[in-house]
Design a protein around this nucleic acid. Structure first.
Lengths: 234, 234
DNA sequence: CGTGAAATTGAGCCTTGTCAAGACGAGTGG
DNA sequence: CCACTCGTCTTGACAAGGCTCAATTTCACG
């Protein structure tokens, strides 16, 4: 409830040919002439933590490439309960359903300061019509999303709370063996448990030394122990 | 454990132009000349209940269109527990990941006598290269799968067992207001609960008259009551 | 220093898992 | 035709896990 207005800022118009993370993104396979087909500006936008990138039900006019940061996709049930169905990291594409002219199915919210490229739907449509090089990338994006969805279900919604949490932490782990955990509420919403239970389970992990707090909501991980918790028993 | 060998039977080679459910399937938008690009046979195959259509890890040489019947996609965790991640009905496409040259990610098993068309990966690749009319359909297939995966998570893995079961029954409901339920084990594996608990919850529904048994594992549904259970309380 | 949101903790209750026993049904062999 | 067998479904009793509600604590921010 801070200044919820000034939470997104225009950063400039992208020059995709020179994109620093181009080999990661949707346009990875495009050749130089392909870029001439882009006739609408692709904007770079920065979002603060907590800012909404797009909302479920909003007409999908643009899709997004995450340049940096972390984004949650939230789905709401009729009764108001919410569930985080996916996390997007740098290189991921959000709002793919826009290409099909559909409304957004999720609400996308930044969990960290996040930079995105906003790609108008028409750009993708035109490229899709005129160059085959985008197809494979699009398929791979769909495939990656689907795979993540399936894994999310089997890994984070199956088994008891400690197992699920262990798997989540391993997923979030950075290469140096540490994590920045999310708010307890978000953790609960990912694992399908209550906020309180998420808090308790994290606390247990801390007490047993499986994770060690090194900063505000930041932990060093005991990978072996976590792996064995994730696998089966408590 | 009956004759597990003779559970699939070749039914003939399909003539897609004359397909009876063509407006439902992947090739819906193709025009007459497009069909000349199909240079490999598309076989029709029938599977008995319980037969495996393809297995996780198997190299994805073909994708499948479900013509009739019901198929479960099962995903296994390292520790052996399994989870049903999706159900496929007639018109659905299975094994889309084959187009990307990937191994199958799930095991597909027929839950009822099921007829499928087996489409060699090369056919889709060629059509995909030469006609744009397949693209939209492919996107829509990916999209439908992803949407189903997300809904599965929010509806069938969120809330208490009776809510989940109610939502499942409503999903399975046929137009005449009846359902053929699956084995208790499969129900449990879809809802993320044990077989016993699935059995108990179904039994409660029967006792309270929310569903009425009309045949072997077949029920007439009280839609209003089920809807209110699905929405919130018990 | 006060305020409010998030995190933690405790206690009791409800839900679900576990283990084990029995019931039912279909297929098999005598 | 009957007994036997095997798998699935059902049910019970108990234990464990997770939820609810409420009280505190912590911490960031004004």
């Amino acid at each position: 409830m801070k200044r919820t207005q000034i939470d997104a800022a225009w950063q400039g118009t992208a020059h995709c040919e020179d994109c620093g993370i181009r080999d990661l993104v949707l346009f990875a396979d495009l050749t130089e002439p392909d870029f001439n087909l882009i006739h609408l500006p692709i904007d770079e936008i920065a979002f603060d933590t907590g800012a909404t990138i797009y909302s479920a039900g909003g007409d999908g006019a643009t899709l997004y490439t995450i340049r940096s940061g972390l984004v949650k996709l939230v789905q709401y049930l009729p009764d108001g309960t919410q569930r985080i169905v996916r996390l997007l990291k740098h290189g991921s594409t959000a709002g793919l359903e826009a290409i099909l002219g559909q409304a957004y199915e999720h609400t996308a919210i930044a969990l960290q300061p996040t930079q995105v490229c906003r790609i108008p739907r028409q750009v993708v449509e035109r490229l899709s019509r005129e160059t085959p090089r985008l197809h494979t990338q699009l398929m791979q994006r769909w495939h990656a999303a689907l795979r993540q969805a399936d894994d999310w279900l089997t890994e984070l919604s199956t088994g008891k709370a400690p197992q699920r949490l262990a798997r989540l932490i391993l997923q979030l782990m950075e290469c140096d063996g540490s994590v920045t955990l999310l708010s307890r509420e978000d953790v609960g919403s990912m694992l399908g448990i209550t906020t309180e239970h998420a808090s308790r389970t994290v606390a247990e992990f801390k007490r047993s030394g499986v994770i060690v707090e090194t900063g505000p909501n930041r932990y060093r991980i005991n990978v072996d122990q976590l792996t064995s918790i994730a696998a089966a028993e408590g």
